[in-house]
Design a protein around this nucleic acid. Structure first.
Lengths: 228, 228
DNA sequence: AACATCAAGAATATCGACAAAGGATGACAT
DNA sequence: ATGTCATCCTTTGTCGATATTCTTGATGTT
């Protein structure tokens, strides 16, 4: 049997830390004690520093010389700018995708849209959220991939990583009602329709609006939790 | 007197390494021997790994597990995609800047455009290139900053960092003739003109074209040097 | 004779532990 | 109550052991 390509501990530590920061296990602004991390992940200091350095480059962690590492703070200002930037980038990518996408691209959009729309058999709420979120991501990724530019997709991904902390806040606080789900469903259907009609300008505007809808809700959640 | 905030060795190593990679001191694809780096920068392994991790996150260095680090390879495919992505992003940012920029923004554009246009008193060729390049960057940064979005500007910066290796190739190979300089000057003047007239669509198109002009030249240089 | 395969040795990356330097917190004195 | 000092904790840099990988040379096969 072929061994998994045994990635080194630094990479693993990076993924675990990133996951825990995004899921809110470590609070924004919290100090990341080496001793705590060491016992939590059962690792040496070397791999941890390596992982933290990468997260600093991604702006998920901030480093202060001689004073260690802290989780990057969250703020309403960052929320607003981040979502705005992401909406603009997604709009740009969509415009290019409509310009450049081929038949396989269209087929992929229809396929992922279909599986996303089929999320109705609600079991537990948690499981619903997980499934819905996964398929939602796949749907949007399918749309974006039509732009056919690795670097633009990479930019998109990096913004998405930064957004995920805020999105997570939203997903955890929001119970997706049947009504809300239906509203999203129709938004997505309209989006698919406009995209397949290759109406770039209108599609980009719809995408931007679609992506900005969570902002007021997240703002409210943050103010309630005093993260302001 | 205030002390310089004595940054740790990892940060310093990061800057030195980045500079040497961008300037081509380390060839694309070249293996980065720890022993070589150790003696070159007179540092231990810890800080070096820290710096390399950050460069991996920026995609300027690639890490292969258990097989060390290599300088990220350069290719014609990456050149094309990178410049395309950058041109699209700059176009987007410019459109937003025209929408959102205020009087101070306009003033800053005029100021930096003026200092850039004044680069005529040619001394040594190297010095000319340095001065021109610095002012050129300042000019474009002034334009972009009008979008008023830290995250978009950060995306722009990260793409620029990746582009710099290719740009450096261009700047080193190209002797800026008086004719070429004059051509650039008129392009910039036209750009400023359209921006101040707030013609977003036309300005974005001009900016994209302006940024794509070096691509054929760089392509030729790379083919000649066999980096293809 | 040339090429592929394999094995042994050397080099290198990777990890954990140890020592030094710099801040932060708390107590004590004024 | 405030300023100063001492102690503790944390970060930071280097060193040494271990496991993995690359290279080189020899052997067998075509």
């Amino acid at each position: 049997m072929e061994h998994a390509p045994r990635q080194n501990l630094g990479i693993s530590a990076y993924h675990w830390l990133k996951r825990d920061i995004i899921r809110g296990t470590f609070q924004p602004g919290q100090k990341l004690l080496m001793s705590r991390l060491k016992e939590r992940y059962d690792l040496g200091i070397g791999p941890l520093r390596e992982a933290l350095s990468q997260l600093v480059a991604e702006r998920l962690v901030v480093a202060i010389s001689q004073r260690g590492y802290r989780v990057a703070p969250m703020s309403l200002a960052e929320l607003a700018d981040l979502y705005d930037a992401r909406a603009q980038i997604e709009g740009l990518i969509l415009r290019l995708a409509i310009e450049r996408g081929d038949d396989a691209w269209e087929a992929d959009i229809l396929a992922t849209a279909h599986t996303l729309a089929k999320v109705v058999e609600v079991n537990t709420s948690d499981e619903l959220l997980d499934v819905w979120d996964t398929r939602h991501k796949a749907f949007h990724t399918a749309i974006a991939s039509g732009c056919d530019s690795p670097h633009l997709l990479q930019v998109r991904q990096s913004l998405f990583d930064k957004v995920e902390r805020y999105r997570h806040l939203w997903l955890r606080e929001t119970v997706l009602s049947e009504a809300a789900l239906e509203a999203k469903r129709s938004e997505h259907a309209a989006l698919v329709d406009v995209i397949l009609r290759r109406d770039a300008e209108r599609a980009a505007r719809m995408m931007r609006d679609h992506l900005m809808t969570p902002v007021p809700i997240i703002t409210e959640v943050m103010q309630r939790q005093g993260i302001a």
